[in-house]
């Protein structure tokens, strides 16, 4: 564990708390992609199967359980109490391609052909693209509530800090995981346009609005 990864994980945890806060305070899930949230649940479940086989630390176990359970709870919120505020027509990304594409990439690139290992690789490639339905929705509406942009910023910052963590690990441990690193760089790059608008507008007190 290093400081970059710790802060990254706390940003990730914080992003989820911001999303829950948005849902609780506005009693609405408007602007949030159900597909992206569902993809995150699949990502966490397929990646954290090692909860049952491989103990890392109390911190690691706690975070894994938090990510799986909060993702499940968010889906429940969107499907049951806040169902009427969900706009299906804006959440139009063809996510079958993401589910299938990540499957092909996992079968090609996995380190080992075991079920747990292949599902771990699947989760990495699925997470790489899981934000796309959310970004498409943002593009379609052209604007977003400020709290939703804070959620996305925290999520993007978590990904960006993981890259710093890998550089640090490479320098100190001479250790690099090609799959995580390549997928992580692609995933972070997807946030570039969002970051630009966030820094130039939201942080200056203006509304998030695409040009």
């Amino acid at each position: 564990m290093n400081i970059f990864r710790l802060v990254a994980d706390l940003m990730h945890l914080g992003s989820i708390l911001i999303l829950l806060l948005k849902m609780f305070t506005s009693r609405s899930c408007a602007g949030i992609s159900f597909k992206t949230q569902a993809l995150y649940l699949i990502v966490f479940v397929t990646r954290y199967l090692d909860l049952f086989t491989h103990f890392v630390s109390v911190y690691n176990t706690f975070m894994k359980i938090f990510f799986i359970s909060s993702a499940g709870y968010i889906l429940y919120m969107m499907r049951v109490p806040l169902k009427d505020t969900y706009n299906k027509h804006l959440d139009a990304f063809r996510w079958e391609f993401l589910l299938g594409g990540a499957g092909v990439l996992a079968l090609v690139f996995t380190h080992k052909y075991t079920v747990i290992e292949t599902l771990w690789t699947y989760s990495i490639f699925l997470e790489m693209m899981a934000i796309l339905p959310q970004l498409l929705q943002l593009q379609r509406t052209g604007e977003a509530e400020t709290i939703t942009t804070h959620y996305l910023f925290a999520l993007g910052a978590y990904r960006a800090l993981y890259i710093v963590n890998w550089i640090y690990r490479y320098e100190t441990e001479h250790h690099v995981d090609a799959i995580s690193t390549m997928a992580g760089i692609v995933q972070t790059a997807l946030y570039c346009d969002f970051f630009y608008v966030y820094f130039t507008r939201v942080l200056k007190g203006k509304r998030f609005k695409l040009p």
Binding site: H111, W166, H174, A178, S180
Partner: peptide, 10 residues
């Protein structure tokens, strides 16, 4: 650390 994986990461 000869593992190619980062399985201690979240």
């Amino acid at each position: 650390n000869d593992s190619p994986k980062n399985h201690d990461e979240l």
